[in-house]
């Protein structure tokens, strides 16, 4: 069986599902991030008067936007993929297929949609002169690869476990929002009291937030050890995810 063709087929189907019934179809993928950007910038800049500490040139809107889109892609990919096996119970019980395909397609869909949004946001910020370093654009896109792999690793674990323990998806929403506030998405590392800063590094997403900012906003920098740890974590999570999924895969239909 051509796994690639199958993944593409499911990818297209999930993508179509996402926008099925909406008037604008795919346009919504572009429109939504813009709307979201407008709202967040209004709330944070005009209501909370938020600003990035230690700099006058960098506005809060690009600071937040550059971190928020990768996060949305990551968290949505993990959350949506968790129920993907359960949601396709009818298919799994009747047709033989490599089930990883469903998880891969689901993760890929979330990333595809939010990467389109990300590119659009970066371009808008660049055009409106918000201090975007376009030289960092290509590395930033490349940074999505390990991020996507990390999401896939988690998604494989959660999707497999969700078949057995249905409470997982419920709990995961809470855990993810905890993870978001536990990473410097809405704030900067230096705003945190000294003794808590080290904790940020325990969050696998911290590296990505800070790296995206370093690449596109020249805010902070990427340390080599942190990069090494992040890549090792990604590979480890992906490996564990693959093993867990393989082990439980044969028993899915017994518990669906």
């Amino acid at each position: 069986m051509s796994v690639v063709a199958l993944t593409l087929r499911f990818f297209r189907r999930t993508l179509a599902d996402r926008f099925a019934g909406s008037f604008s179809g795919g346009l919504w993928a572009l429109f939504q991030p813009l709307l979201q950007l407008a709202i967040t910038s209004f709330v944070f800049v005009h209501v909370f008067k938020a600003r990035v500490p230690g700099t006058d040139t960098l506005g809060y809107v690009p600071f937040l936007a550059i971190a928020l889109w990768p996060w949305t892609a990551f968290s949505e990919a993990v959350l949506r993929s968790t129920t993907v096996i359960q949601d396709n119970a009818a298919l799994i019980g009747k047709v033989a297929l490599p089930r990883e395909v469903l998880v891969v397609a689901s993760v890929a869909t979330s990333f595809a949609i939010h990467m389109v949004g990300f590119v659009a946001i970066v371009l808008i910020l660049a055009v409106t002169g918000q201090g975007i370093h376009l030289a960092g654009f290509v590395p930033a896109i490349l940074l999505y690869i390990p991020l996507c792999a990390l999401a896939l690793g988690f998604a494989l674990i959660f999707a497999a476990v969700q078949v057995f323990v249905r409470d997982l998806a419920q709990a995961l929403g809470q855990v993810l929002s905890l993870l978001m506030f536990g990473a410097p998405v809405y704030y900067d590392r230096v705003q945190l009291p000294e003794q808590f800063r080290g904790w940020l590094d325990a969050n696998p997403f911290t590296f990505y937030v800070e790296s995206f900012r370093a690449l596109l906003l020249d805010h902070g920098d990427i340390s080599m050890p942190a990069l090494g740890i992040a890549m090792t974590t990604t590979v480890a999570v992906l490996w564990v995810g693959h093993r867990v999924f393989r082990r439980l895969d044969a028993h899915f239909e017994d518990f669906l």
Binding site: M1, S2, A5, L6, L8, R9, V95, A96, L97
Partner: peptide
């Protein structure tokens, strides 16, 4: 058809 292994 894809599930049965047919390419695009």
């Amino acid at each position: 058809a894809t599930l049965h292994g047919l390419s695009g």
